[in-house]
Amino acid sequence: MLPHEKALVKRLANEPFALLGMNTDSDTVENLRKRFQTEGLTWRHAMLGSPQKAAIAKKWNVQGYPTMYLVDAKGVIRNYWLGGPSEEELDGAIDKLVAEAKAK
């Protein structure tokens, strides 16, 4: 997934789109920040702490990883995936909503 997400962020850099990582690693934020840099994960990450601690993941009842929500430009949930969609499905869903956002 990460290589595809990198490609996605690059491809949509000038579009009304943002990838928000909800990171659930237990390592320190500083170490993780460095690791994101090394691995070229340029998008923003909410640092939640390990799955056992991650308050938002608990509140949102995250059942497994990855879990993804796709939200449109108006803030409405349009897709939900547990376990992650295929690259084609993900691209298709995002492109559709980006086109919608730009049509406004």
Partner: peptide, 28 residues
């Protein structure tokens, strides 16, 4: 929701209104 990012900056999801947002729960 409000969260703190990798640079220690607090932010809210609502700041992203007007953009399509993919929220991805993940970990190494």
């Amino acid at each position: 929701f409000e969260a703190s990012d990798e640079n220690g900056v607090k932010f809210k999801l609502s700041e992203y209104k007007g953009k399509v947002v993919l929220i991805d729960f993940w970990g190494f």
